[in-house]
Structure formats: C-alpha cells, structure tokens
Amino acid sequence: MTVGKRIASLFRMDDDTWARHANPWSVWSRTTVLPLLILAAWSRVWIGWWALVPGAAALLWTWFNPRLFGRPHSFDHWASKSVLGERVWTNRDENPVPEHHRVVPNVLNGVNGVGTLFVIWGVVQLSIWPTVFGTALVYASKLWYLDRMVWLYEDTHP
C-alpha cells in the first residue's frame, strides 16, 4: 500500500469525498493549512499551551476541507484534474501509471519533505528564514506535484 493510500485511508477518502475534494474551492482553500499550522505553532509564544487549540482547529480543517464543498459541475478545471490525478497516483499499486510519471512525483514529495523539515526547524527555533524557506519549498514542490498530477490524469483519462 502506498503512503498516499494510507493517508487517504486515514482521512476516510471515499469516492464521494474525492469527488468533492476535486472542487477547485476545496483545492485552493486547502492551501491555507500550512500557514494556519505555522501560526498555531508560533502562537505558543503569545498564548502558551492554548496554541494547541488553533493547532487542533487547523488539523480539523485538513480533514473537513475535502467534505465541505460539493462536487464540481465540471472536472475540466486544472485544480479538479490535479485531485483526480492524485487519486490515480494513490492507486498506482493496483493500476500502474505510465513509466514517464513514476519518478518526478516521488522527487517532488521528497522536496516537500525537506521543506517540511525546514518549517519544523524554523517553528521550533522561532526562526523566520527556515520557516519561510521551508514554506516556499513546500508550496513550490506541492504545486509542481499537482501539475504533474494533471498531466498524469490527462494521460490516463484521454
């Protein structure tokens, strides 16, 4: 089972949830999760242990977001195709993806992981530069990854 499949299972992503998450409003509003988590973690300086409250709210938003919006009227949007491609990628152990799509998503997820480590370092140390640098790496790699998912979807669903 792929890591993506485990995460989808943890988030209870069924067919309806995937379709609702393909709504562009869901895709774009989900980009707020990382800044919310960073702000929640950083807020420990100002509000102490109460920082767990906005942290928990940000995590709940991560789970709730794919369920909040309705199915899109059309799946022709770039954002919708990125989610549908992500689902293809998640299921690649059952339905192998074309050879030319097998390396770059893993590399981009690795870059995302490195960015996440910088964010964690920055937040723990309350240091701006690693937090901002890590956030830039996370967003650049994630958006590039989503673009690759659009390409994957278009290649597998002509």
Rank of each mutant, 00 (worst) to 15 (best):
L117M: 12
V83S: 11
H100C: 12
P130Q: 06
R87K: 15
Y139D: 01
G110M: 01
A79M: 07
L146H: 07
V114K: 03
V111Y: 02
V123Q: 03
H77L: 05
V97R: 01
L108T: 02
E99I: 14
H101M: 06
V88D: 10
I120Y: 05
V138S: 04
T135I: 10
D93Q: 12
H101F: 12
A79Y: 02
W78S: 11
A140I: 14
H100A: 14
V97I: 15
L108Y: 02
D93P: 03
V83H: 06
V103M: 08
L84I: 02
G122E: 05
G113N: 11
V83A: 13
V123L: 09
A79Q: 08
P96S: 06
N109S: 15
Y145N: 12
W121R: 09
L108I: 02
V132K: 00
P96T: 05
P130N: 07
Y139M: 11
L146F: 10
N91V: 06
W89L: 15
V114T: 09
W129R: 08
V107I: 15
L146V: 00
E99W: 05
N91D: 15
V119T: 02
T116W: 09
Y139K: 11
S74H: 05
Y145D: 01
G85E: 03
G122N: 02
H100K: 12
E94S: 14
W89A: 11
P72N: 07
L146M: 13
V138A: 08
D93C: 09
S141E: 06
E154C: 10
K142D: 00
M149P: 01
N95V: 14
L126T: 13
L143H: 06
